[in-house]
Design a protein around this nucleic acid. Structure first.
Lengths: 201, 201
DNA sequence: CTCATTCTGGACAGAACAATCCATAATATG
DNA sequence: CATATTATGGATTGTTCTGTCCAGAATGAG
């Protein structure tokens, strides 16, 4: 052991995450990162290897926590349907949703699509974890007859994820908090059991 | 008049749009653009001023056409509710939705947020046009009693736009065409009139 | 205290990038 | 045919960016 690091790796990573959320990968320079992370160039490279590795690490932490916070809502006891609907509403209230600070997961997907294997792997892993929880909760809702017995749960899960993305994009596009809540409330209606046919043929 | 241009400005712009759809602004170099547009550097600068101006022009054309194609579906005669639902389904079938080719509008918003005045202006203008059509159609649906009389149309419009964004993101994330259709079908259920309360309090 | 080890920051190298310059080619007009 | 005008592409410039180097500072271990 010798001289200890003068900066907090964890905090530096948080600041990097925030910047990547705002600007994405390509538009964020190493100088930008050094400035917000308050770390010297050499320290940054020593600790995080290079810009790409830092981005991937940041992405992994971000999406893992993001999925976890949604899963917590989904797994609350009580009505399964209410949990799903509540998860949407809680998400719409998240304080880190704003036009300035985007979702790093969506940023990564829009910026890299499926072209980057590492980015794809990280995104898919997180999506898989969310999907598992989601399917478990939806299955419970079906058993409890809160949703139609003939409902296609996979489609419901696709719709749920799509709604999350829609809310995030609306936030980034500058929509008001009020609008975000309304989107969540509205989407919630689609899950409810109904006797009549409600989808177009 | 003197020597005419050897390339088709229109086609070159289309190719630029496609590249920006795939890679966004920052990750697309002028060399990339030249290669794809099959135009010499000087010709590109003579015709489109610079990279940023080319991007803004491409964005304007893209979002204008994108909104127009949705508006066409929304304004089809017959049931207003069916038009809304059909617009979603038609959108989910669009051939330019794929994991490779993203939506340039979403790219621009994720990449620039609200920080770039020109990008914001172009996006907002297009959104305003879509919103006008949407409100007109939703109002008609309400008059025709296809949706609840106490429905909040502004919220419905927010939800519609959010659904479009969700579908686009799902496509970019690599979801199957089948999944996209299901998202559209599912979202459609939220618009339908219902006597019981379907939204959480 | 001494010293080996690690951290730090400024300087630096090499590549990529956006944009301009310039010489040449092509063509409408007179 | 002559010429003014515009298009083209290769060379070039100046900037920015990523990543490395190196000399000096700080600190734990002996």
């Amino acid at each position: 052991m010798a001289r200890p690091k003068e900066f907090d790796q964890e905090k530096a990573l948080r600041k990097a995450i925030r910047l990547f959320c705002q600007q994405g990968f390509a538009a964020t320079s190493t100088d930008d990162l050094m400035r917000v992370m308050e770390v010297g160039r050499q320290s940054m490279y020593d600790t995080f290897s290079d810009k790409r590795a830092l981005f991937l690490k940041a992405l992994e932490v971000y999406v893992t926590e993001s999925v976890h916070s949604i899963n917590v809502e989904l797994e609350k006891p009580g009505s399964a349907l209410a949990s799903v609907q509540n998860a949407l509403m809680t998400f719409a209230q998240r304080k880190d949703l704003s036009s300035a600070e985007g979702c790093m997961g969506l940023n990564a997907i829009t910026e890299f699509g499926q072209r980057d294997g590492d980015v794809t792997r990280i995104s898919r892993n997180a999506a898989r974890v969310l999907r598992q929880t989601l399917m478990r909760v939806l299955t419970r809702a079906k058993k409890q007859r809160e949703i139609r017995s003939d409902a296609d749960l996979e489609s419901m899960a696709d719709f749920f994820e799509s709604t999350l993305a829609g809310i995030r994009m609306a936030a980034k596009a500058g929509q008001s908090r009020h609008a975000l809540r309304n989107i969540a409330a509205f989407a919630s209606r689609a899950y409810v059991a109904s006797d009549r046919r409600t989808t177009p043929e």
